[in-house]
Amino acid sequence: MKDAAAPTPPLALEGLRKTYPSPEGPVEVLRGVSLALAPGESLALTGESGSGKSTLLHLAAGLDAADAGEVRIAGRSLTGLRDAGRARLRRDHVGLVFQQFNLAPSLTVASNIAFQARLAGRADRAWTAALVARLGLAGLERRYPEQLSGGQQQRVAIGRALAARPGLVLADEPTGALDEAASDAVLDLLLELAAETGAALLMVTHSPRLAGRLGGRAHLRAGRLE
């Protein structure tokens, strides 16, 4: 729990519940999950396949709606917000990194990195250029995603997530599609840049080794955090 003088947590989840229908009947994936992240804090979310890690991340990003409970991003509750309101909150406060990168295939590396920052009206040329250099993408700015390796594409995705200097970065298995060496390099960059911008980081991962490199760790089992 935070006292009144503490800074607003970038993410606060309270009693989240989520049920999916299935041929065998409803499956309760999340059964009252609560957590909060302070600015600059990093937390690894682990669990078995199907334990609800991605669901929790999607609820935290406002990509999906919980059946019960509350999500607060930068102090603002998602409850009652419609699609456009949730979209604005994500645009202004959340950076997302996915396992399959999900870059815009039609945009160049430079445009992909700057995309969300420009959407949010916070494009900063110097910061974008620094990101490109720090991510080892110099010289590749005019290439398209499909012309890059998996590791390079994930670095572009990290750049896109951080270009707007969001208060919260949500990463769903960001190294799941990469080999070990590339995974380490990508995670190093993600942690370094998140720390530098003061963003809180919630990262879903299967790997205990990678989870151990984050500031904290939460394990999801049978729909509850351990």
Binding site: R90, L96, S106
Partner: peptide
């Protein structure tokens, strides 16, 4: 193609 743009803060409408 459209889902990432939605995820980054553009409404479905």
């Amino acid at each position: 193609q459209t889902a990432p743009v939605w995820a980054m803060g553009t409404s479905r409408r």
